[in-house]
Design a protein around this nucleic acid. Structure first.
Lengths: 230, 230
DNA sequence: GCAAAAGTGTTGTACTTACACCCATGG
DNA sequence: CCATGGGTGTAAGTACAACACTTTTGC
């Protein structure tokens, strides 16, 4: 009943691989694991899993994300499908890559042990199995485009964030330094953030004010025909 | 031997659907057909086909493109994978969409008859089967981004083109009018085109000069750190 | 009191936008 | 000779890039 109408056509395993981005110590990190199964057991790999017959591709990706992070409502986006014949040396597998933005603070370290999951600095990415390095590269390029045109970078933070931290995040994603005053000017002229009363006093003695993204202001901003740009 | 290492996992049919764009009469068109198989036989559909076990996804897409156009070396790019459980009412099929830029002039009309293929104006797109309307929408958005940042629009033309035609093309893709002088200024300052001696006298009495894209100049342009933008 | 990070404006430059007339030619 | 589309420059406004000093406070 899976193929009522379509006969005599080949079928394939479909996997999802997740490029799970996290932001920590002013650097972008990716959640990697030592591959638990053969072939290439114990080599560095993205978090992945096979799609099952009763779930959509994105549900399969959400399943993988939940398994490794125990977080729901993670911002996630498809990167592309990878389907070279010999991309997976363990069999013919078509993989769909997704990237996800998670809050490292919320990350459960006991989970990490269970799955041998580790946050690896994007700048020190090791060689990964199969075409996973290409997936990370594609995901990063897509992420760079997306954070520059849509207010999604806030998903890296647990609700509130400081402007210095936000700038560090953008610098990590773009992999280039940004001018502090120009960065803040762009943000303030968009008027889509709310300044809170309290400060983060961990990273400096003076302390940096916290901000939160104001969805309502952002919708008004869009309604005026303006477009997010950073 | 298809699944040496991976056991007990579900397998799926994988199809490719091609959004074949063509440019004609100052309008963007999409090559559509009346679906030849059940279910939804005779409904409007993108050109598609199933992936076979010995081919990559992109090879499967090239196969589809060649079947319906008899053209090789078509510019083609993946849009995304579509994998909702019930997206195809004929069975569980994951589809990967590709868009392609083809030269309508070269199009073989006897082929068109054979496959009941028709160029449909993008502005008059009918309801298509399954999620094909979404695929077209996604493909167009990707195309808009791509033609604005990379010199790929030239693939719509059989080598040479006039500036009025190129502008009509961009207007069709962006679905908005562009300023003639600003458009030409951008093009000429990039210095990546060669002006030919002959003119197209079909579309006007005066005639418009033909241009061709100069790959060599474009590489120099990139080497100087400049980026294509239109 | 000093080190370390937060916060704040201005100016020149480059890019973008808006805009109107003459030219060449076929019929 | 006129209708049709091809071709050209400038000026104003906007966005972007470059740049240096003062403030706060924990130690």
């Amino acid at each position: 009943m899976n193929t009522t109408y379509y006969q005599n056509t080949d079928q394939f395993l479909i996997s999802v691989d997740c490029i799970i981005f996290g932001f920590q110590n002013k650097e972008l990190h990716v959640l990697l694991t030592r591959r638990p199964v053969k072939p290439l057991k114990d080599e560095w790999s993205l978090m992945g899993g096979f799609m099952e017959k009763d779930e959509s591709i994105s549900e399969a990706a959400e399943k993988v994300l939940f398994r490794y992070t125990q977080q729901k409502d993670i911002y996630m986006e498809q990167v592309a499908a990878y389907g070279d014949v010999n991309r997976d040396t363990g069999g013919r597998v078509v993989s769909v890559a997704f990237y996800a933005l998670v809050k490292v603070e919320k990350f459960n370290t006991s989970l990490a042990k269970k799955f041998d999951a580790r946050w690896i600095n994007l700048r020190e990415l090791p060689q990964l199995v199969f075409d996973h390095n290409k997936m990370v590269k594609d995901a990063l390029m897509l992420l760079q485009y997306k954070v520059s045109t849509q207010p999604i970078a806030f998903h890296f933070f647990n609700d509130k964030f400081t402007l210095p931290a936000l700038q560090d995040l953008y610098e990590a994603i773009y992999q280039m330094p940004l001018d502090k005053r120009n960065f803040r000017k762009k943000l303030t002229t968009m008027e889509i953030l709310d300044k809170l009363e309290d400060k983060d006093k961990v990273n400096s003695k003076r302390g940096a004010f916290y901000f939160i993204f104001n969805k309502h202001k952002y919708h008004k901003f869009l309604a005026e025909g303006k477009r997010f740009s950073l």
